[in-house]
């Protein structure tokens, strides 16, 4: 990982120094590539998506001075990947890790009897935020990396310095807790 600090990288962007891109990629490219790859199901597409995200950073910084470069980049990558996936509408399920993650969570978020019912997505987001707020930090991180970042179990285990079995068990318990929480909230 690059030893260059975020502040230094952002300074490079502001100085229009293209080294900013290589430093950003070196520092955060791995995680973001995983996010994109798991959404798009293709390493090549992920590569392009990451490049697009870096270009977007180049366009927006300056004037933007992101407080958290990693989050800024990863949100950008994810948005681009989601857009790309939707646009291609190849949405061939079974392609990426997103599908696996979705399949894990869909029975939690939606009633099995009405899997295709129109959901109040905003209410569900709000509820999920409240639910996440009550979790231990590590549990919350695993959950977000899995269902927001679409990382694989292995990738999460590496990032969290935990075993894969622990990640699986944590996610399973958290899904069950979330299901109960949503039922209490009247959202499923």
């Amino acid at each position: 990982m690059s030893s260059t600090s975020d502040a230094q990288i952002i300074s490079l962007f502001h100085a229009r120094d293209q080294k900013a891109l290589s430093e950003t990629q070196q520092k955060y490219g791995g995680l973001c590539h995983s996010i994109a790859k798991n959404i798009l199901g293709s390493r090549e597409d992920a590569e392009e998506c990451l490049n697009d995200a870096l270009y977007k950073l180049w366009e927006t910084i300056p004037p933007a001075k992101p407080n958290n470069l990693a989050a800024y980049l990863s949100v950008t990558v994810r948005n681009l990947a989601c857009n790309r996936r939707a646009a291609a509408k190849a949405a061939k399920r079974g392609g990426g890790e997103l599908d696996v993650a979705l399949s894990e969570l869909e029975n939690v978020l939606a009633s099995p009897e009405q899997p295709d019912a129109v959901l109040d997505t905003r209410a569900l987001s709000d509820a999920m935020n409240r639910f996440l707020g009550g979790l231990e930090a590590e549990t919350r991180v695993m959950f977000v990396l899995r269902y927001w970042g679409d990382l694989t179990i292995k990738e999460i285990a590496e990032k969290c310095g935990a075993g894969q079995s622990k990640v699986k068990m944590t996610l399973l318990r958290t899904r069950n807790d979330l299901k109960a929480f949503l039922e209490e909230e009247g959202l499923r």
Binding site: L109, L119, S125, G161
Partner: peptide, 29 residues
């Protein structure tokens, strides 16, 4: 469950949770 709904729900997660996750360093913890 429709994929776009899933995306919308996840897009609504709080930024600080996302930041926390992407910056998480298990070793450092």
């Amino acid at each position: 469950m429709r994929e776009q709904d899933y995306m919308k729900i996840m897009n609504g997660l709080r930024e600080d949770y996302i930041s926390e996750a992407v910056n998480w360093d298990g070793t450092a913890q």
